[in-house]
Design a protein around this nucleic acid. Structure first.
Length: 462
DNA sequence: GCTAGGCGACA
DNA sequence: AATTGTCGCCTAGCC
């Protein structure tokens, strides 16, 4: 077998522990006592007696060769497409730059927040929306506020400039440079350690933050393609995995049965909280329920909810009160997470992964509130990480039996991307869905959406 | 060349 | 004060 370092070039960082190439070692990790010991030492802070087998032996150790294979696989890029996009972005960027200079009455470095602040606030006399540690904020939120409340063209132009600039420098210009000469693909690094919740992290390049939110950014996903003839990219992503875990932990009968019927969970929650039929839920009601559903996962306050939804603070507080009245199990779960973290000092995931939460012991109220959010969020985010890791191992063990079968290429926290022959995409999607749904037994069913197509964007849902 | 800060991409 | 977790680009200041 070709060592990874030969494949993807010198100087490339890989999964390392004490500078040992874990990805390569991982091929025989299970038989390598020295490696196993050092890996154990590295993960020991996350483990206790009860999680040693399910988490360390059965999950983390077995994931090492899976990630090694993913790194070796890499993913193909449509470089000519990226080059064309780069030219187009540059044309637009030059145009917007000229407009910004015209509005400002002079040229300056738009990438410099310091210079930009001078132009906006000193020279153009715009309002300072928010301060940063060292100066006046020019972030998207502040510029959006200014764009909405003034006639000045600059804030909107700078927002546009930033979007073009971000896409070009971080993705369109950078990704082609990372294509390996030998394989014609990019071989990202997956880091098993370092994310406190147990999630994976990815770098060189980071494949876990490829744009999807905006129409322009989404185009970048077209450049991620199947690299072999007659193959497609197949994506399989967990639907609402953290909310399902919340329902699993709470055992709330209504939530669980809604998931069992695979209902639109935000609509369902809106109907329950507002006391109307699901069919009568308005777009705004659903949107508010969705915001609270996610807010719960992060421990959001009424203030935070009011900011993300546009509700007033009392309105947001009222909604949260109604929410907890309808779902007392969720309130109970939150309180239990906090209490356990206070008692034991740790937040603990479904497979027994532990994260210390020293913030709960702080004399600083702000720190203690942070600790409470961490205690809840870590259980949900970390359990979701445990779950997909188990799924990756199961799928890997099956697909490796067939050299012509699917190859696992990318993991993005609740999503897996495979390269698969187009003729078997439909059958493989079902097998992968099945294995992902069964990865861990929960009190709620798991749902996995699949799609496939020539590139990472074009997939059709199935 | 290194580090911190600001910003913004994703789940 | 006010929602969690990552990585990377760019500027600015310092060695």
């Amino acid at each position: 077998m070709i060592p990874i370092s030969d494949l993807i070039g010198k100087g490339k960082k890989q999964i390392t522990i004490d500078n040992v190439d874990v990805a390569r070692v991982g091929e025989y990790a299970a038989e390598d006592a020295d490696f196993t010991w050092r890996f154990y030492e590295t993960l020991r802070p996350q483990l206790d007696e009860s999680s040693l087998v399910p988490l360390f032996v059965e999950t983390e150790m077995r994931l090492v060769p899976v990630l090694a294979q993913m790194e070796r696989n890499g993913v193909a890029l449509d470089v000519p497409l990226l080059v064309e996009m780069g030219k187009d972005l540059e044309r637009q960027r030059v145009e917007v730059t000229a407009q910004i200079y015209a509005e400002a009455g002079r040229s300056f470095n738009i990438d410099s927040t310091k210079q930009l602040a001078e132009v906006l606030f000193d020279e153009q006399g715009l309002r300072v929306v928010r301060k940063t540690k060292t100066g006046r904020s020019t972030d998207a939120d502040s510029l959006g506020t200014l764009a909405a409340e003034t006639d000045h063209a600059l804030p909107q132009l700078v927002l546009h400039y930033r979007e073009l600039s971000k896409l070009k420098s971080t993705y369109v210009d950078t990704l082609p440079r990372m294509v390996c000469a030998k394989t014609g693909r990019v071989h990202a690094n997956y880091n098993m350690i370092g994310a406190v919740t147990g999630r994976l992290a990815s770098n060189d390049p980071n494949l876990q933050n490829i744009p999807i939110r905006t129409a322009l950014g989404r185009q970048i996903r077209k450049a991620f393609v199947a690299g072999r003839p007659d193959h497609v990219l197949l994506t399989a992503d967990y639907s609402q995995v953290e909310l399902r875990l919340l329902a699993h932990y709470c055992q709330d009968a209504a939530l669980v049965s809604a998931f069992e019927r695979d209902e639109d969970i935000h609509r369902f929650v809106a109907a329950q909280v507002f006391g109307v039929d699901a069919a009568e839920v308005t777009a705004e009601q659903r949107s508010r329920a969705k915001a609270v559903n996610f807010g719960i996962i992060y421990g959001q306050s009424a203030f935070g909810l009011s900011r993300t939804t546009g509700m007033s603070v009392p309105e947001a507080q009222n909604f949260i009160d109604m929410y907890f009245r309808r779902y007392p199990g969720i309130r109970l779960f939150i309180d239990e997470c906090i209490e356990e973290a206070k008692q034991t000092g740790f937040a603990t995931t479904i497979l027994g992964r532990r994260r210390p939460v020293p913030e709960l012991q702080s004399r600083n109220r702000q720190q203690r509130m942070l600790g409470e959010r961490l205690a809840v969020n870590t259980v949900l985010q970390g359990s979701a990480a445990d779950l997909i890791k188990k799924a990756m191992i199961d799928v890997h063990d099956r697909i490796m039996e067939d050299p012509a079968g699917p190859r696992m290429l990318i993991q993005v926290h609740d999503e897996l991307v495979f390269e698969v022959h187009e003729d078997s995409a439909a059958q493989e999607a079902e097998k992968i869905r099945e294995q992902m749904c069964r990865a861990l037994p929960l009190n709620v069913p798991l749902a996995v959406d699949t799609s496939w197509g020539r590139n990472w964007l074009e997939g059709k849902s199935h």
